[in-house]
Design a protein around this nucleic acid. Structure first.
Lengths: 246, 246
DNA sequence: GTTAGCATACTGGTCTGACCAAGATCAGAC
DNA sequence: GTCTGATCTTGGTCAGACCAGTATGCTAAC
């Protein structure tokens, strides 16, 4: 963390960025605070306004501040969208990263469910239960079903009461929803998946209710493994057509 | 992922950003490619150069492109530093996030070690072994010891051959190194930690060598738990002063 | 005294045109 | 054929200006 001081040796952009970063990291600029106007900042640091805007824009994409048109620039609470953007771009340039991201998702969720077993409260349980019920109700719908599935998994992470895990998990949301949907589309054709989806999620739910981290982790991990297996089989057109008519 | 098309309805910055994003995500702009000059981009999109610079700066902090002075703007491979920046800022404004980040770290590493059991090759094993040896050698040094500890854990993640996990793990590196160092400083005072550090890491190493994901995960998780326990006791000045003189 | 309404100062959003320093390039000298 | 220097190009920056809304305060009407 090279906190370059605001020496004059720095280029314009770096000067402004460092100036603001210093105050942001030191805490003298807290979420909710409004920065001085771009013009003031420019004259204060002896740079031009476009440079100030560059720095503010940089902080904006980092989710640190928000530039409000004709209002001013205010400090915001760090947001997820940054990671979202990053993963979106990163994924685009390395398509093989998708499987990788899934691994990270498994990592996050398995840790989250352990924490959830310790920390979940009634509200969390209720949310999980609602999500579970919704999975059952929407088992025949691709869109709603995928969303219900996603909601359930998100509820697990939320129940961990870990901001970081939640942030990381959400940052992969865009990718996950796709995977959830495509998985759900398989359900229509292959009935055996219904059992898998409903039973698995209920078992996971029960493990959390029982506050049994090991069981919850193991069950969730198995759930992912089975899901992988289904998708793998789908690739070769196998699935369970042999045991059930489509 | 609202991929706003480059309609004229957008503001200047959004227009440029969307224009570039489109090409970045579509893959027509790949890492290594050089963008057209700022001036050309400006005239092409009908905006001024400062606006173009804002967009380029935004992509820069996202780690997507790199602006090289007097050379041009080139597309880079997505980098870790973005997440680093984000976590740095986020942590500064929510200090209580540190414990949270540790949880995420545990999540990443436990998943990584499972993958490592499957995917690790000779090179990975050797790197782990070196790191393990180094931990033993530097057991009495705070700085070098902390680094050896960190290297070992990083070697695990690297052995997972998962880009995403590596990226996430690295992004927490700054925070982790602190924690590693402070832990090592305890070693000097409390001899029993030496055994814990050396033996635990060896057990972890052995589990990976044995390619036993469950055992590796469990051992690593226990390793973290014991570390937590030590730190927790250190807070109340307990530790093992009773059984060993300082 | 209170309030509605408007003028004004201020804010972000953007543009134009310009200058600088240094890498890249190519023509011309050797 | 090679070296050298002028020139083109590139990013880095600045100054000043205009627009369009917001916020504020002052005035005028009730």
């Amino acid at each position: 963390m090279e906190l370059k001081r605001t020496a004059d040796g720095e280029k314009g952009f770096e000067k402004v960025f460092a100036f603001l970063r210093e105050r942001l990291l030191a805490g003298s600029l807290k979420p909710g605070d409004r920065l001085i106007s771009e013009r003031e900042l420019a004259t204060l640091l002896g740079v031009s306004r476009p440079i100030v805007r560059e720095a503010l824009r940089a902080l904006t994409v980092l989710g640190i501040v928000e530039i409000r048109d004709r209002i001013g620039t205010v400090v915001t609470r760090p947001d997820v969208s940054v990671l979202n953007d990053f993963f979106t771009f990163a994924l685009a340039q390395q398509a093989d990263m998708l499987d990788d991201v899934m691994q990270a998702r498994v990592a996050i969720e398995c840790q989250a469910i352990r924490l959830a077993c310790e920390r979940a409260n009634i509200t969390d349980f209720e949310r999980l239960q609602r999500a579970l019920a919704r999975i059952g109700e929407t088992i025949d719908e691709a869109d709603a079903g995928g969303m219900a599935d996603f909601d359930f998994h998100r509820a697990i992470v939320v129940a961990s009461h870990s901001e970081t895990l939640t942030v990381l998990h959400s940052s992969m949301a865009g990718l996950l929803t796709h995977s959830h949907r495509s998985r759900r589309e398989l359900v229509q054709a292959f009935p055996s998946m219904k059992t898998y989806l409903i039973d698995d999620h209920r078992r996971i739910f029960e493990a959390v209710i029982a506050r049994d981290p090991e069981r919850a982790d193991a069950t969730l991990r198995k759930h992912f493994a089975i899901g992988d297996e289904y998708r793998r089989r789908a690739l070769v057109g196998d699935i369970d057509r042999t045991s059930a008519s489509g």
